[in-house]
Each structure stands twice: as C-alpha cells, then as structure tokens.
C-alpha cells in the first residue's frame, strides 16, 4: 500500500516536471471550451446545464488519454527504469495501480479546471448542480476506463506510437459502439452483436450520469472494467517485464 502511494506521488509529480501536464491541460481546456460554445450551441440552447460539454468530453479523452497512457510503461521500458522500478520492494500491482491512479488524478485536475463553465451556467441561470456533479463523475468514469485500457496496452509494447494508436482505436470502439450509426447498422445485419455493442458502449452510460442518473449497474460496469484492465496490466508486466 505504501509502495502504491510512493509510485503515485512520483508519477503525478512527473507530469508537472515535464511539459506534458501543461500541454495536455491547455489543449483540453481550449478544445472543451471551443466545442461547447460552438458545436455544442451552449448559448442558443437556452438551457442552464453542461450537457453540450459532457457530450464532447469522451471525444476529447479519446485522443488525449492515450497520449498520457502511451508513455506509462513504454517509456519505462525505453529508459530501462522499469528494471529499477520492478526491483524495488513493491508488489507489481502497487506499481500498476499507483501509475493508474496518478494518471486518473491528473485527468481529474484537468476536468476540475473546467470550473469556469460551472460558474458561467450558474451566473446565467439556475442549473441543477447535482446533475452537473454526476456529469463530472461520469466523465471521471470514462477517463478511468480509457486510462485502464491504454495503460494495459502500453504494458504490452515498447513502442509508444503503437501504444498510442492501439489505445485510440480501443477508446474509439468504446465510444462509438453505442452510437446510432453503429447500433442501427448492426441490428439490421447482426442483431446479436448490436446488443453487445450497446452493452460495452460508454457513451450511453455517460448519458445516464449527465442526466443525473447514477445507477449501480453503470458504476459496477466502470469499476469492473477498470479492475479487469488493471489486472491484465499486472499480468502483462509480470509476463514480459524484461522484454
């Protein structure tokens, strides 16, 4: 447990010791703001909520989260520091979970910095702040799911480009699987797959959170999804730590 905290602290400090943190946060905030106010029709909707913002978050995370995760293990392999990290008296899961939590906390910081949007809707109207809070919670769930997949992919390759491209593809699959284009196409041709596609889709589940509906089903889905990929990550590190 102590080892996990140590890894967490080092990783989180590592983001801010390099330009990674600043580039990530600035690009995320600019894109989130721009998309919300332009494509999201924030003003013309005349509704005091953050619905337009929340719909764009998965699409932004789709590119930005793999940029965080691609280096998680691939970089350790390239620098050789994986040999140092894994010969410290830590259990392997402590290193895996510590890295994951640091990246997750970092996404949390980026999301928290969108607070001017919350201030704006509160200044313009009377939004349901409980719904906004569950919306943010949903965004954190999506970030966690993407991070867990991306980190597991990073553990399997030394090459950061491969880690990035595969993670984007996986996140895109998770985001797009529930979209009408995919589900309609599948239900006409392969109805069995349409059900599965809808079940693994994170968009629909995020939709619940952004409407203020937090169900045990969705929380269990995200929690077990992350747990599964963190477990896969630990196995991947254990099996091929020296490659």
């Amino acid at each position: 447990m102590g080892g996990m905290v140590t890894v967490f602290r080092r990783e989180l400090a590592g983001y801010f010791a390099t330009p990674v943190a600043y580039v990530f946060i600035v690009i995320f905030l600019v894109m989130a703001g721009a998309l919300t106010f332009t494509l999201g029709n924030f003003f013309t909707r005349s509704q005091a909520d953050l619905q337009p913002f929340f719909t764009f978050v998965p699409w932004l995370f789709l590119f930005l989260v793999p940029a965080l995760t691609m280096r998680l293990w691939a970089e350790e392999r390239r620098l050789g520091t994986i040999e140092l990290l894994l010969t410290l008296p830590l259990a392997q899961w402590e290193a895996v979970v510590g890295k994951f939590l640091a990246a997750w906390a970092f996404c949390g910081i980026a999301l928290a910095l969108t607070f001017p949007l919350v201030i704006t809707v509160n200044a313009l109207g009377n939004p349901d702040n409980g719904v906004i809070l569950t919306g943010y919670l949903g965004c954190m769930m999506v970030a966690g799911a993407f991070l867990a997949v991306g980190a597991a992919i990073s553990a399997m390759t030394k090459n950061q480009v491969i880690a990035f491209v595969l993670a984007v593809a996986a996140c895109f699959f998770l985001t797009a699987a529930g979209s009408p284009v995919v589900t309609e196409f599948l239900s006409q041709r392969i109805p069995e797959l349409a059900e599965i596609a809808r079940a693994v889709s994170i968009t629909e589940r995020l939709g619940g959170f952004t409407r203020g509906v937090v169900t045990a089903r969705d929380v269990i889905f995200f929690a077990s999804f992350m747990a599964f990929f963190l477990f896969a990550n630990t196995i991947a590190i254990d099996q091929r730590k020296a490659d």
Binding site: R10, L79, G80, T81, L84
Partner: peptide, 12 residues
C-alpha cells in the same frame, strides 16, 4: 541493485 546502464528518471 544497480541495473546495467544505471537507469534513472531523467526529469527528477
């Protein structure tokens, strides 16, 4: 343990 090449985290 000192691994081969003494790897360290460069930004620290």
């Amino acid at each position: 343990f000192l691994p081969e090449g003494a790897p360290t985290y460069p930004e620290m």
